[in-house]
Design a protein around this nucleic acid. Structure first.
Lengths: 206, 206
DNA sequence: AATATAAATGAACATTCATTCATTTAAAAG
DNA sequence: CTTTTAAATGAATGAATGTTCATTTATATT
């Protein structure tokens, strides 16, 4: 398929991958900074040093742009999060690796995370089908194995997820908003993460 | 102050409280359904059966409208959440009452909750100063008392909050999205809430 | 150098946007 | 009933919106 498209596209002027990247990054930047209603195609074009029409070469329309942005962010998220992970890992090691990987994701891509959260909490999430089946089957099998080994009593996956990750995501949000709910600066250090993690592990104990 | 404004306003045509309510509710409805970029002043006027100009009697501009919406929702949230609550309650009873109250809030005002989350995860949250100091001092004192009594070891408030409520909010979000992360329907019953609550309590045990 | 192909463009489109304003409507007081 | 006051309005404003299109530019092959 790759060779095919290379052959057929032999004569075409090559796509500027920097351009499509620039459009994507600037779009995410604008959305995180000004919200979805702060993203206009013309402002985006200007920010990405591109003609408005150029955007429509790579994206069918505004909706498709947003959808592809989310897709891209989700793929990056899956990559980082699955790094070094295996469903065969012990409950403790596997969950801790997930915590570390997910925290690394927001450290390496803070804008991606904020975009992700903004998108997920908006109605856009309902119009956008992103395939993360590989990621999900990894997570699912991990839980199945944990129950098999008796590291965790059986429970609905949503209950598991809420305790295992709801806590972490809340910590991360405090970390990202310097002006947190408590009005003092909060930095999520490894130590605090470990402290919370041990409490979560205790919650899962029989 | 109330009497004063009554006297001075004696001759004026009375403000239609239904109108301002209708504007508010329709606005929240539109935002939850179509996102912040789905809310236009003209569409809102039509939905609320009002002239666009009328909106500007009650709200300085679009930004002020959004800010007042959030303010209203936060006040409602505080009312419901503090119902029956006291910082003097035992750790277990107080936290459980908070869980029940917050769940009741999203049951009675599901749109409010979704609006709240959408707003909180958007950049709008930074431009909008809402006073919830009464609410916060209640929550703060509750934690102080819990530490005093030895029901909980001292920890940063953000860590406490993430374990105590991060879990609950995650459950609530699964509950509200019928198409959840796990792709099956999830309903947050009292039983499941209690199950998760007991795990959270265990996490806090010494 | 000439050709072919698609990338890239800037100007233009109709539409929708937030906001304003001159005018009308309704209600309370005299 | 008349007057007064502010609520309420519909039409209008210019600016900004998403999208298109005829044209130009750049590149890989001949």
């Amino acid at each position: 398929m790759n060779e095919c498209s290379f052959i057929f596209a032999a004569d075409m002027r090559i796509r500027d991958e920097n351009k499509i990247n620039s459009i994507r990054e600037k779009a995410i930047e604008m959305i995180v900074g000004e919200g979805f209603d702060g993203l206009s195609m013309q402002k985006l074009a200007k920010a990405a040093n591109v003609s408005p029409a150029t955007i429509y070469i790579y994206f069918k329309n505004r909706e498709d742009l947003l959808s592809q942005l989310y897709n891209h962010v989700q793929n990056t998220f899956s990559e980082v999060t699955l790094d070094g992970f295996s469903p065969e890992l012990s409950f403790r090691d596997g969950l801790w690796l997930q915590w570390k990987n997910r925290f690394r994701f927001i450290q390496e891509h803070p804008l991606y995370f904020q975009f992700q959260e903004q998108f997920r909490n908006s109605p856009l999430i309902n119009q956008c089908g992103v395939d993360i089946s590989d990621f999900k089957s990894n997570m699912k099998n991990f839980v199945i194995n944990a129950v098999k080994r008796g590291d965790m009593k059986p429970m609905e996956p949503e209950v598991f997820w809420s305790i295992a990750y709801g806590t972490l995501y809340s910590l991360i949000k405090f970390h990202l908003n310097e002006r947190s709910m408590m009005n003092n600066n909060f930095t999520l250090t490894d130590e605090k993460m470990k402290q919370a993690f041990e409490m979560v592990i205790k919650a899962f104990k029989h």
